[in-house]
Design a protein around this nucleic acid. Structure first.
Length: 584
RNA sequence: GGGCGCAUAGUGUAGUGGAUAUCACGCUGGCCUUCUAAGCCGGCAACCGGGGUUCGAAUCCCCGUGUGCCCGCCA
């Protein structure tokens, strides 16, 4: 819609000047209507009514008639119910978008962004709940890249402290028999043979067992504490031991994510900030904060009551009595470091981190460091309650992907008899990963939902396969046309009648930029998901009404529009992490 | 006890001040001799309750109800 706005804005500026209105203040009145069938852009005149002392209806009429004189016939302008409506002529759209090859986001300022997402403790395989973080984060990375921003996708590896310590201790001290006995006692299911060679599934059992055994065992607890303390001091031997324990798990986790098309540009270890001394420096600097306080045993904190934090405890501890740092302290050092890498920071966090994030934000403020943008997402529950890796009450992402692939294969075998096996597998994999991603992305992040196999495996109209199918149709047309002796000739727009379907498709394409921009600015991939469904539906209607190949004759204009749509759908799929297949 | 999120057809969801509240599942009636029916066209059905602000509220404010998360010198 930017292309249309560019035409309208100067005109409206002139008209507003006649009313003695400062255009800058009222620029935002030009907006996309909620119902995009009504028009492309509109100006609601209700707020002008008071200032101009006229009825909105009268104002809309005046603006419309003035604008008509300036803008001409490419855009039809009308006034209804106090709105000025702008509706672009489809032929003008063809000329501007298709024939003159309009480039998206050409004039927008671009920035350098670091998006930190997932950062899950490397102690076990991804379950569906933890994966929401990765899927959301990766979509933000892709959307920002589509917009033109330069993005670094970052995974913060928790390579020290309790979680990893427990794992490392278990692997060092427990035999397979011991852990299986402990797990059986607690009723944790046996390892699925399908994942018996995937280390995240194998080693998580040591982690779970250690959590059971240490409950009433002081000896284990003291051994553990010793290791954890050493790791927090930056002891390289212990950190190495930790690394050896968790890295195979992390590799397994990343393998799962790569099945979903999720990759990172950089991994940063938490211990780095202990080793390079930046954590100590932060702790030193915080002493000069007005919020600084010391507990009886020498532990240090910031008192956050005056900053709007309330509850049982308003103290934000950043240093223990023994002088060691805490997770949050390291997070402060980490943020300081991140700002050296980019102009904008985005973190993706679960809603359980809301308070923590606020505390970190205030502390950063005290250190004169900017806060990051944070996108919070609610948890995915199971019908029987919260998912927990420790308790083994989870749906593994690996299982979900497997089930989705099987279902896709089954549907494919019904639809396409005699399809080659490797090709079928490739399609099934793409459908499965795209559908799983989309089913999570289409829901607004702050909304919690209950996992249901039926919904997660939905390949129906409100899903990625719907979009992929439109894309495959456009590819199929391209293939057919390529096989014909097709001669591209000039299109004479004067002698063509255009129907509603093609017009709607073009107008939907025109909103691509607005939709990406909104998703990027508000960090809400679900906006763009809705848009892609709309775009695909618009293409399907065009496909129905505008026959491109008729008895080996190619309709030049329709083919050009189809090709343009194909590229846009393809681009939009990539921006969401949906795999745009040529055939399915 | 306190804080923070969320509440829209039977179900799941879109929509953060404006035009007849979106889309899908579901239920229901139609469309394959025409470029892939994972598709298309039609029908049914909803803003948690109560106040307030506003020319105008699903949207903003207050109270209530329900629900989730958090309030560790854990990560």
């Amino acid at each position: 819609m930017k292309i249309l706005k560019k035409i309208i804005e100067p005109t409206i500026e002139i008209i507003f000047k006649d009313y003695n209105l400062e255009f800058h203040d009222y620029k935002n009145l030009i907006q996309i209507p909620r119902d995009t069938d009504v028009c492309d852009l509109c100006i609601p005149c209700f707020s002008l009514s008071k200032i101009l002392k006229k009825s909105p209806i009268q104002i809309a009429e005046e603006i419309a008639s003035k604008a008509k004189k300036i803008i001409g016939e490419d855009i039809s302008i009308s006034s209804i119910n106090g709105y000025v409506n702008f509706y672009s002529d489809p032929k003008w759209l063809i000329k501007k978008i298709i024939l003159e090859k309009y480039e998206f986001f050409e004039d927008d300022p671009k920035s350098k962004i670091l998006i930190e997402h997932t950062s899950a403790n490397p102690n076990g395989p991804f379950h569906v709940g933890r994966a929401r973080n990765a899927i959301l984060g990766d979509a933000l990375v892709r959307l920002n890249r589509d917009y033109g921003n330069s993005v670094q996708a970052e995974y913060y590896v928790d390579d020290m402290g309790k979680q990893v310590g427990i794992l490392a201790w278990a692997i060092e001290n427990l035999t397979k028999e011991e852990i299986e006995k402990a797990l059986q006692r607690e009723g944790i299911e046996e390892l699925n043979p399908m994942w018996k060679n995937k280390e995240d599934h194998v080693r998580v059992r040591w982690y779970q067992a250690a959590n059971i055994l240490r409950k009433d065992n002081l000896k284990i607890e003291s051994e553990l504490n010793e290791m954890i303390n050493k790791s927090e001091e930056g002891d390289t031997e212990v950190l190495n031991q930790f690394y050896n324990a968790f890295q195979p798990i992390l590799d397994g986790m990343l393998e799962t994510l790569s099945k979903l098309g999720i990759k990172y540009d950089s991994f940063t270890n938490e211990s780095q900030f202990i080793i390079d001394g930046s954590v100590s420096k932060i702790m030193e600097e915080l002493k000069s904060s007005e919020l600084y306080g010391v507990a009886e045993n020498g532990a240090k904190y910031l008192e956050l009551e005056s900053k709007g934090v309330s509850g049982k405890s308003t103290k934000f501890f950043y240093q223990r009595g023994d002088g060691s740092s805490l997770y949050a302290t390291r997070d402060l050092a980490y943020h300081k470091w991140k700002w050296t890498k980019s102009d904008k920071l985005i973190n993706v966090l679960g809603e359980d981190h809301r308070l923590q994030s606020k505390q970190v934000s205030i502390a950063l403020n005290e250190l004169k460091i900017k806060s990051p943008e944070v996108i919070f997402y609610a948890f995915i529950k199971l019908p029987e309650g919260k998912m927990s890796t420790r308790k083994g009450n989870v749906v593994f992402m690996d299982d979900l992907i497997y089930e989705a692939e099987e279902l896709a294969l089954e549907i494919l075998s019904q639809r396409k008899m005699g399809i080659e096996k490797s090709q079928a597998m490739n399609i099934a994999k793409s459908v499965a990963s795209s559908a799983i991603r989309f089913n999570i992305l289409k829901v607004s992040p702050e909304k919690g939902f209950t996992f249901k196999w039926e919904d997660a495996l939905s390949f129906d109209a409100d899903s990625a396969p719907f979009i992929m199918y439109s894309h495959a149709r456009s590819c199929s047309i391209k293939k057919k046309v390529d096989n014909l002796e097709y001669i591209e000739n000039n299109i004479d727009l004067n002698n063509i009648e255009l129907n509603d379907s093609i017009s709607k498709l073009l107008r939907t394409i025109m909103r691509y930029e607005d939709s990406i921009e909104k998703s990027v600015k508000e960090n809400k991939p679900n906006h763009f998901c809705s848009y892609m469904l709309e775009l695909s539906a618009a293409y399907n209607a065009f496909y129905r009404d505008c026959t491109i190949i008729n008895e080996n004759e190619v309709n030049n204009l329709f083919f050009k529009v189809s090709e343009y749509s194909r590229k846009i759908i393809n681009r939009g799929c990539t921006a969401l992490g949906i795999i745009p297949l040529d055939s399915m």
